[in-house]
Computed example of a mutant assay.
Amino acid sequence: MGQCRTNSSSWVETNAPFGKVNEWRDETLWESRDKSKDKYYSDKPYYGIKGVQRISNKYIAAGCVVFMLAGAAFHFVVVKQSSAKALEVLNQVDQESTNWYLETRRKARASSTSEQIERLSKEWEANDKLKK
């Protein structure tokens, strides 16, 4: 393998013939920096905020994972609470409907057909008067 050295400390390995190397180099990469200036910048704020030093990417990634786990736990709790509340409301509606059905059935059995027809006729007349 041929090696090509430049003025800086970076180099590229390639299997191109000697002298025919097209070196690819990106000056924005951390590895391509001028390491002699590291001590000059070590006391300077990394994020532009005085007193805040550079944070390792591992800590940032760990913080993101913790944030995601906390968000997932919060989401789980909220969904669980919402589901429990909805179930409680549905059970209450079911109980009211069951009570209404049982009361209607009890009234139907307690009176004759003619009494039921008379009661319904009175309810319809009352509803018609309210509409007018």
Rank of each mutant, 00 (worst) to 15 (best):
Lys50Ser: 14
Asn22Cys: 01
Ser32Pro: 00
Ser97His: 10
Asn22Arg: 11
Asp43Cys: 05
Val52Arg: 15
Val21Asn: 06
Tyr47Trp: 09
Asp38Arg: 06
Ala70Pro: 01
Gln53Leu: 12
Ser83Leu: 01
Phe74Ile: 07
Ser56Gln: 11
Asp43Ser: 07
Val65Met: 04
Ala61Phe: 05
Lys50Val: 07
Tyr40Trp: 14
Leu102Ala: 05
Val65Arg: 14
Asn22Phe: 00
Val89Asn: 04
Gly71Leu: 14
Glu88Val: 00
Tyr59Trp: 15
Thr14Phe: 00
Ser42Trp: 08
Leu90Thr: 04
Thr28Asn: 13
Val93Phe: 04
Lys20Trp: 09
Asn91Thr: 03
Lys37Glu: 15
Thr14Met: 01
Phe67Ser: 06
Ser83Trp: 01
Ala62Glu: 12
Ser42Gly: 00
Leu69Asp: 01
Lys44Asp: 04
Met68Asn: 01
Asp26Arg: 11
Ala72Asn: 04
Ile60Phe: 07
Val52Ser: 01
Glu96Trp: 06
Asp94Lys: 11
Thr98Val: 02
Ser32Gln: 13
Ser83Gly: 06
Ser36Phe: 03
Arg33Glu: 14
Gln53Trp: 01
Ser97Tyr: 14
Gln53Val: 05
Val21Ile: 13
Lys35Arg: 11
Thr14His: 09
Arg25Leu: 15
Gln95Phe: 10
Leu90Arg: 08
Asn57Lys: 05
Val66Asn: 01
Glu27Thr: 13
Met68Thr: 00
Thr28Ala: 09
Ser56Gly: 13
Glu103Asn: 15
Ser32Cys: 15
Ala73Thr: 07
